[in-house]
Design a protein around this nucleic acid. Structure first.
Lengths: 231, 231
DNA sequence: TATCGATCGATACACTGTATCGCTATAAGA
DNA sequence: TCTTATAGCGATACAGTGTATCGATCGATA
């Protein structure tokens, strides 16, 4: 199970025959397929077909499917712009948080892949470096704690957001919050009276948009950090 | 793609022939396999074999594989003890957070499944209800924000923790923090000098244990909540 | 021009989830 | 007790997956 992705594998010398391919082209095709139809659409056969090649051709550029997925993830990390070096830790982390969220909404499959394996690609490492560097505390352990907590929140929140989005999309296109509650099962459940708080949520809560909720939660985390490490 | 799990499907009347089965037995076997060998070990063939049955037999108790996975997730939710009703929101949420973390460490596949589909099983709903109920703010929207943020952090943090754990386990059994840094690739990367903060982390940071880091991050979130909603 | 060498992809294998459907063993009816 | 109906089980089959093997085919070099 030692499926270590080789991040700095040299490109094969040149491509002679039909259409010259490259690892970038393979990864690009895979990303395009995943963006359009989800991760299920990313199979060696489909990616190869999208490039007008046979499935086995891909093995010249990618050693395994896990490596292809790793490369896709790293590509997304590359899309996230780093915070300005002059920014304070709070704006810096907010910038990163929103960058990750935006990237994850552009590529919904990102959250499915993130966290399956550690991100050690060049773009992921650059992302991590600039994120850490935006928090200029003297104690490096504190820096790790803060960045770790913020990123944990970000990934958790974005994952939840996209899950909700998918559920809404699949169960009838109605975008109204908690419209699942009108499903017969949910109504039955709420009718038992054993979920009073849940019922309050369904009936009383206003459906604010996702970005607002994300920002509120992020505010909690950053406020908590400030409360302990502010000058 | 309307793979709606039917949570309250009635059990089939009775099992006559070889070994009487039940949905609980099927889910239990699946969980046992997943605990032992990861989610890859959960296939209809393998689960059925573990029960001494043919693969098709499972379809009497479970409509699809996604439903089986949903049931497994709900079973884990059932293991998480609710917070005491007399607890304040802070202790209540801390209790839930640690409960989720503990359950996820008992069943490492949990984080892989959580967030793929919304959790609407009875145990998940009970878990959500008791979690919401522990935060007795007058504004239900605030309750949602707080619980949402805390759970986002918890799931993100636990996911990261288990990913790290898997990486350590697969890359040589050395448990030392950042021992990946001694891998040739990581050394090469750090030698470029383009990741100074990362290098500081690798060389200077002390390797505290995961529970401590989890608690610290959770503290940030809860402190942030307290800063805005404290009486 | 002839040989070599690399690369492409057809074929194959083990595995997945699941649709179909004949068999069988049990339960009900006479 | 003997027959019939019924329902559940699982063998078989199918489309899909990742990938190992390896023969054919093409380009470049001698």
């Amino acid at each position: 199970m030692s499926n270590e992705t080789v991040w700095d594998r040299p490109e094969p010398p040149a491509k002679p025959s039909p259409t010259p391919l490259s690892r970038e082209l393979v990864v690009g095709a895979a990303i395009r397929l995943a963006d359009a139809g989800g991760l299920d659409e990313v199979s060696f056969r489909k990616v190869a077909a999208a490039l007008g090649a046979g499935p086995m051709r891909l093995y010249g550029y990618v050693e395994t499917k896990d490596e292809l997925l790793d490369l896709m993830v790293d590509e997304v990390y590359g899309e996230i712009t780093p915070p300005s070096p002059s920014a304070g830790w709070r704006e810096g982390l907010r910038h990163v948080a929103h960058g990750v969220r935006a990237a994850a909404k552009r590529h919904e499959w990102f959250v499915d892949l993130v966290g399956n394996r550690p991100h050690q690609g060049p773009n992921a490492l650059t992302h991590l470096e600039t994120t850490l560097a935006t928090v200029r505390f003297e104690d490096i352990d504190q820096v790790l704690d803060v960045v770790g907590a913020v990123m944990a929140y970000v990934f958790g929140a974005v994952r939840g957001e996209i899950t909700e989005l998918r559920a809404e999309r699949s169960s009838g296109m109605t975008e109204e919050q908690w419209q699942r509650a009108s499903g017969p099962y949910m109504q039955r459940v709420l009718a038992t009276g054993r979920f009073p708080t849940l019922a309050r949520v369904v009936h009383e809560s206003s459906d604010r948009d996702a970005a607002e909720r994300f920002e509120t939660g992020l505010g909690y985390v950053l406020d908590g950090v400030a409360a302990r490490h502010s000058p």
